[in-house]
Write a protein that binds this DNA or RNA. Structure first.
Length: 434
RNA sequence: GGGCUCGUAGUGAAGAGGCCUAUCACGCCUCCCUGUCACGGAGGAGAUCGCCGGUUCGAAUCCGGUCGGGCCCGCCA
């Protein structure tokens, strides 16, 4: 009966069997330490029998093996216990040398990322890499738990769609049995439709972007958290929900994974329960005043301003998450709600220097949506949009939501330099494998 | 798409006209080592310095081209 590495300590004096991968062997003459890795971590095995040590000759890191032996209480061992007088059983021998180290941190320098991803299949077994993706998994778990507690229903919407979902972003075209289809760049229209069903919905799913962007914050396949909620007073309700979610998730991960975050050199969390909020115009003004660079003519925030306002808010407000609201109307999408002035009811959530979410209010009045569609050059009779409008004809409450980048969030939580480092198998303009 | 950069053993780095028959660390192989945990020690294998061409008595090093990366901007989340 197999037990896991993490449970060894509670089996002192008993004979146990562990199964896992050969992680490391240290030969000290008459004494050999063998580190076995399983899903709970590592366990140390002490081998003294020459014949048992000999079984490992020529076998490389990654060899799958089973170990049966007696657990001994041992303060000198990692985890406080280790397995003695073992019998080794090689389940799958590995004779190929590992292309990349799994025992020491891998280089994440930008010029070495290509090697990192070329060797990803094995490199992900590196303990430091594992921690990144364990934390990513936990972040999405906390997000789900928060949203379930707030009455959200998790949905799944199609990724093969008839037309561009929202315009703006470039789309991937796909041959769909002779018809032209695209890969969804966002579940935008479907999640809004679902507000008419459940009021509150969310989805965590890939979105596909065909922009020829080559930066540290862009990939062509992203994992998006999309939230949409009905019966809101204004987009302040959405901002509050997303703020509370981010506050809760960040505090949980810092509390429950303090050790892993520390070993990844993650910076201290500087957060307030209420995130400060500035309009885009205010940020342009503040930035121009502080840096002397005039950005008053910029429509959106420049990447430099995004970094700057986060630093500013960290110092000024003790909060490294900050909202940038009131995007100029000229950049507004047709499904957004406009303010009375020339701005939109938008709010971008910035965290540690990048935009991780947009939280606008939607236009829920049918005729107004059609009007904004036409103004944006979108055909309301196109099958990609006519079904969307049908939902509005049959009653949509005031609603809003957010598109929230899970990859960027993970990247920034861990303090990585490139979004790709937070993705198992990233897709960018040059990479389609592994 | 524009600008700027970088390609040296499996991995990470040093070398910036002759000291290079290319150095170091990790990994790998052989041997020694009974408390390692980035174990230690001795020895060894492994690189036509991305590729093509040029300059030069001589090129990893300089120049041109080419291929492949990266960063920033734009676009976008």
């Amino acid at each position: 009966m197999r037990i896991l590495s993490g449970d060894v300590k509670s089996h002192i004096g008993k004979k146990v069997r562990v199964e896992g991968w050969l992680h490391k062997k240290r030969l000290l003459g008459g004494l050999t330490f063998v580190s076995v890795r399983d899903r709970k971590g590592l366990v140390q095995v002490v081998v003294q029998d020459k014949d048992e040590v000999e079984k490992l000759r020529g076998l490389q890191i990654g060899t799958v093996l089973a170990v049966e032996g007696t657990v001994k209480d041992e303060p000198r061992a990692p985890g406080g216990a280790e397995i003695h007088e073992p019998t080794l059983e090689i389940m799958v021998p590995v004779t190929e040398e590992s292309p990349i180290e799994i025992d020491k941190p891998l280089s994440h320098k930008s010029e070495n990322l290509d090697t990192l991803f070329d060797n990803r299949v094995v490199g992900l077994r590196n303990l430091q890499e594992t921690k990144i993706f364990k934390i990513r998994s936990e972040l999405t778990r906390y997000i789900r738990e928060f949203l379930y507690q707030n009455d959200f229903v998790e949905i799944n919407t199609p990724k093969l769609v008839a037309g561009a979902a929202e315009g703006g972003a470039e789309v991937f075209k796909v041959d769909y049995f002779g018809q032209e289809a695209t890969l969804a760049q966002s579940p935008q229209l479907y999640k809004q439709i679902m507000v008419g069903v459940f009021e509150r919905v969310f989805e965590i799913a890939p979105a596909f972007r065909a922009e020829l962007s080559a930066t540290t914050r862009h990939v062509s396949e992203v994992t998006m958290l999309d939230i949409e909620m009905g019966f809101i007073k204004d987009h302040g309700d959405v901002m509050k929900m997303v703020q509370n979610m981010v506050y809760d998730v960040l505090n949980r991960v810092y509390k429950e994974h303090a050790e892993d975050l520390k070993s990844l050199n993650v910076p201290e969390l500087i957060l307030k329960p209420e995130f400060p909020s500035y309009t885009m115009a205010e940020i342009h003004k503040l930035f121009s005043k502080e840096t002397g660079k005039d950005t008053s003519k910029e429509i959106d925030l420049t990447p430099e301003e995004e970094k700057w306002i986060c630093e500013y808010s960290k110092k000024q407000n003790g909060c490294e998450a900050v909202y940038a609201t009131n995007l100029p109307k000229s950049k507004m999408k047709f499904y957004h709600m406009a303010n009375d002035d020339d701005t939109a009811r938008s709010a971008d959530l910035l965290f540690r220097g990048v935009e991780i979410a947009t939280c606008p209010q939607r236009e829920h009045r049918h005729d107004k949506v059609v009007e904004q569609m036409k103004a944006a050059g979108v055909d309301p009779t196109h099958p990609g949009f006519s079904h969307f409008l049908l939902a509005f004809k049959h009653g949509m409450p005031p609603h809003g939501g957010c598109g929230f980048g899970i990859d960027r969030f993970t990247e920034k939580v861990i303090g990585l330099a490139n979004i790709k480092e937070a993705i198992l198998f990233p897709r960018d303009i040059n990479r389609l494998a592994p």
